[in-house]
Design a protein around this nucleic acid. Sequence first.
DNA 1: TAGCGTACCTAGAACGTCTAGGCAACTACT
DNA 2: AGTAGTTGCCTAGACGTTCTAGGTACGCTA
Lengths: 111, 111
Amino acid sequence: MTTTAPNALVQGTLDLVILKTLSWGPRHGYAIARWIESTTDDALRIEEGSLYPALYRMQHRRWIAAEWGESHEGRRIKLYSLTPKGRTELRAQTARWGDCVVAMAKVLQSA
Amino acid sequence: MTTTAPNALVQGTLDLVILKTLSWGPRHGYAIARWIESTTDDALRIEEGSLYPALYRMQHRRWIAAEWGESHEGRRIKLYSLTPKGRTELRAQTARWGDCVVAMAKVLQSA
DNA sequence: TAGCGTACCTAGAACGTCTAGGCAACTACT
DNA sequence: AGTAGTTGCCTAGACGTTCTAGGTACGCTA
């Protein structure tokens, strides 16, 4: 990770990608970031300074729940999982994102 | 404007839609907002408290230029137009938005 | 034992947007 | 003549999210 490629992520979408990541099952913070980066071929880069505050926020809103655990290598990890409320939020934010994309397309493809 | 429909706009896209609007020719602030709202069937709502600071910012960055004029009804208006730098920025931000949409699609459609 | 990767976290700044006002002039209705 | 609605511009301050730039600790490998 030596390159400084511009991050394509637009403010407000971090919560959505985290929710989506967790919809495949519980993961810990660091793994969430790595999964998103590899899934998007590094187009979305998740800074830790954004990630952990976001996780804290989402936990506070009861979208996700945390639990301390241990990795295969014996490291302590904090496993996050989606709550029912988080699942609802995921649906809502996915729809909202779709609306945004549609609206932007109307503007950008206008003639 | 009595309804309180949720705004589909995601932070960071306001500049892009303004640039795009001005690519069709000079317009004044109020007209920019109305054009975007009507083009997107009110999906994107442009608050004046966001619009004018954005216009100020973009003017400061030399993406747009302003000129005082007069409307048909004799009202004073501030006409904004795209500068060459703004045109470059429009291309860049359009590409960036495309990247973001692609990356988000990878995450949201992942299996 | 030094270095790298994993894994967590925080404080403070930066940035963009929204809330909630204010001002002025024109238009239309009463 | 008064007043309500619309057009049109603007600002201060709050707010929320993200980034910068740190810090800590442990496991693995050379």
